[in-house]
Design a protein around this nucleic acid. Structure first.
Lengths: 191, 191
DNA sequence: AAGTGACCGGATTAGTAAAATGGTCAAAAG
DNA sequence: CTTTTGACCATTTTACTAATCCGGTCACTT
């Protein structure tokens, strides 16, 4: 079996375990078992548990970026791009699973690594959003305002519509999420 | 000393302690001491710690409602009212202190009563917002859309602008908060 | 050379005794 | 007699310790 394969196996097993049980409840023995690999093997590819976690986080954010980049057409309007990226992102349940599990772990157990992981993902998304917003402002597509604030609000709005709302409300469909996103960010509520 | 006074003393002392130390770290002995009252006296007015906490939460939300009602003029536009209520609410630091302390306690220690308290406040605000939004929709002042979602987004937007943002950004002024509130809810970002 | 799992030491958990706290009530104060 | 009080009780929380678990290593197997 190729070296690259074993590494990939470990990565896949660890992703599964982190998404299913969270950071703390994922043991290296368990990862080894799921990956059908001796525990020592893991340590030939990754220096320790945190670094393995980091690597997965990096993969997740890279995947998200790649999804975004695939959808963004520089010649299309900002909100057009935003909607297409949102659409594509909403289909990627695997990214969300890890995100949701870490949120839960952070809430219920308060594992520092879960919080750090969430912050890392959030930062990548925010940085990315910020750049796009800056570009849109330069293009004169949206009003000139602080990109940091805009991207923060966009991110939180996304969380509210996809996750928070589900506690008191039936989950929104992809279409509804896009509609509300557009309503707040592009049109405003006023008639 | 009048009975009503002693009750008020206890209420004031407890509010102070809950705002300063949170729910868990507030002991009944301490409340009695701050209120200059025997511990037993507290139990002549309140059945137990939770009920005392509830009473304070009720007072806080009543105060918020009263602030809101004072500012709302039924003949003025919705966003006009919204801004004036926001303005008045942002001045009420005492309400915010308890809210912020409970948020912190919930995050750091996870005291269930802190979470419940926050939920109670949130629910009161959401119900109130929902009614106002419904009214504005009937008046044809804002677009017809689900009031539950609108009020939830409004509430979270408020939290983001007043609290969450402060971790990565310098706190916004009252004027800035109002501007961004208007930008997202009334105008939208698009040019 | 690559892969493994028994093994090690530090970290976490379970178990328990001691301390703290919510709530009561007999007695003191008014 | 009514109101107030703080010592007291039962339960919860905390501090401490022993037992277990888990991340990481490495001598041994394949």
């Amino acid at each position: 079996m190729a070296v690259i394969d074993r590494r990939q196996q470990v990565l896949k097993a660890a992703t599964k375990s982190f998404s299913l049980f969270g950071y703390k409840a994922t043991t290296m023995d368990q990862v080894a078992k799921i990956a059908n690999v001796g525990k020592g093997t893991i340590y030939t590819f990754f220096t320790n548990k945190e670094q393995l976690f980091d690597e997965i986080l990096r993969d997740v954010t890279l995947e998200m970026k790649s999804i975004a980049e695939r959808e963004i057409k520089r010649d299309k309007p900002f909100f057009d791009n935003l909607h297409r990226v949102l659409d594509a992102l909403l289909d990627f349940r695997s990214e969300h699973e890890l995100f949701i599990k870490l949120s839960q772990e952070n809430r219920e157990v308060g594992t520092p690594q879960a919080q750090e992981g969430l912050d890392k993902i959030e930062n990548v998304v925010l940085e990315y959003l910020e750049r796009e917003v800056e570009f849109a402002i330069r293009q004169g597509e949206i009003k000139p305002c602080d990109p940091k604030i805009i991207s923060m609000v966009m991110f939180r709005l996304y969380i509210v519509l996809t996750a928070v709302l589900n506690k008191t409300h039936k989950p929104l469909s992809k279409e509804e999420i896009k509609t509300y996103f557009h309503l707040f960010l592009a049109e405003g509520l006023a008639l």
